[in-house]
Amino acid sequence: MTNTPTGETMVLHLLRGAVPERADELTKLWREHGHEIMVAPSAKGARMEATSKHIIFSPKTIDFFWLFGFSAWRAVELYSPALVLGVLTGDALDSVISRDEDFRHLEQEYKRRLGTAKSLLDVDDTTEIEWPADIPMPTEQRESLSSVEQMATFDLVAIAVAFAFLHEFKHVQVRAEEKKLKIKEEDRQPANEEEMACDTWAREYIMSKAGAYAKDHGHSYQQVAQKRAMAVALAAVIIHALTPQSEHWGSENYPSIGQRLATLIAGDNLPDDSPFWFLTGCLLIGLMRLDGRRLDYKEATFRNFVMKLLSEMQ
């Protein structure tokens, strides 16, 4: 990730790094479709989209993934005490939060961070906002980061960006298949259904051969699968931030944000004690609190909390 992307080379490097066990397959698939990367000038909003021949994105959109991803991950340190106490005591999350005298101030700071990240959508260029002093600027050099925590977040954000490009890559494949089969525009799959299909394909592409990577690199399947699942969950939160409020309940062009979150945050049959459920629970609590939603839920496990929150968002 960088402020000066290098088009196709940069994107392929990112995708191959996110799913290295599929690197050769991915390159072959890319060449078969013969499409190109176009780097668009940065402007207000965010741009990442596909046509029949191109994937188009702006450098500022990558900066947004980075800034919002690093900011949103602070939800873990903010909401984890309440989530842990809620599970241990059986108290509702709202009740646990109300007893923490310092929580309101800490949450205000968290919301301020996310507000700074979202302000990036309101300007033409990244240089127009005041970048938080404790969040590194986007870089391709993982080793240049100053802590293990920053490097771990780098990995998650990189996979989240790769997910977004894979989603767009699937759109390109759909258009190519339609052209091959001479499918008329009026006979296409509805746009909102295609969005869900592209989400599902991108997620499965990242997850389905995690076991092969784990075996070749001396990791357990669970270690690799939960890291990638966490990154996809982070991508879902960033997509939520990029989706206009008016589209949250769905439209002809997009599924509801609740449906997308439920599709992307599925856990891949990870066990109840996987850190994935705990970390994802914190991210979802953050979304609910940002929307001013009540959290009067009592669940016995982190997994149950995630499933409950997802059901409430749909």
Score class of each variant (00 low, 15 high):
residue 1 M to N: 09
residue 6 T to K: 08
residue 7 G to Q: 12
residue 14 L to D: 03
residue 20 P to D: 07
residue 25 E to H: 08
residue 26 L to C: 06
residue 31 R to Y: 00
residue 34 G to T: 04
residue 35 H to V: 05
residue 35 H to D: 09
residue 37 I to T: 07
residue 37 I to M: 13
residue 37 I to L: 10
residue 38 M to V: 15
residue 40 A to F: 11
residue 41 P to A: 14
residue 47 R to T: 13
residue 47 R to G: 04
residue 50 A to F: 10
residue 50 A to T: 11
residue 52 S to G: 14
residue 52 S to D: 13
residue 53 K to G: 14
residue 60 K to Y: 07
residue 62 I to W: 02
residue 66 W to D: 03
residue 67 L to E: 09
residue 75 A to Y: 07
residue 85 L to F: 07
residue 85 L to W: 08
residue 89 T to S: 15
residue 91 D to C: 08
residue 94 D to I: 01
residue 95 S to H: 11
residue 96 V to Q: 05
residue 98 S to I: 00
residue 98 S to G: 05
residue 101 E to H: 06
residue 102 D to V: 07
residue 103 F to L: 13
residue 106 L to Q: 11
residue 106 L to W: 00
residue 112 R to A: 14
residue 113 R to L: 15
residue 117 A to N: 04
residue 120 L to W: 10
residue 123 V to S: 10
residue 128 E to L: 13
residue 129 I to S: 01
residue 137 M to N: 05
residue 139 T to A: 10
residue 144 S to Y: 03
residue 145 L to K: 05
residue 145 L to G: 09
residue 148 V to G: 00
residue 149 E to I: 13
residue 153 T to F: 06
residue 155 D to Q: 05
residue 156 L to K: 15
residue 159 I to W: 02
residue 160 A to H: 06
residue 166 L to V: 02
residue 170 K to E: 08
residue 173 Q to W: 09
residue 173 Q to I: 14
residue 174 V to M: 10
residue 179 K to S: 12
residue 184 K to Y: 09
residue 186 E to I: 12
residue 191 A to V: 04
residue 192 N to E: 14
residue 201 W to T: 12
residue 210 A to S: 15
residue 211 G to I: 03
residue 211 G to S: 10
residue 213 Y to A: 05
residue 227 K to A: 15
residue 236 A to E: 10
residue 240 H to T: 07
residue 240 H to D: 13
residue 246 S to G: 00
residue 248 H to T: 09
residue 253 N to S: 12
residue 254 Y to I: 07
residue 256 S to Q: 04
residue 258 G to K: 03
residue 259 Q to E: 15
residue 262 A to D: 12
residue 267 G to L: 12
residue 268 D to I: 04
residue 269 N to L: 05
residue 275 P to T: 06
residue 279 L to M: 13
residue 281 G to H: 06
residue 283 L to T: 03
residue 286 G to F: 01
residue 292 G to A: 08
residue 293 R to M: 13
residue 296 D to G: 03
residue 299 E to K: 14
residue 301 T to C: 02
residue 308 K to N: 06
residue 313 M to S: 13
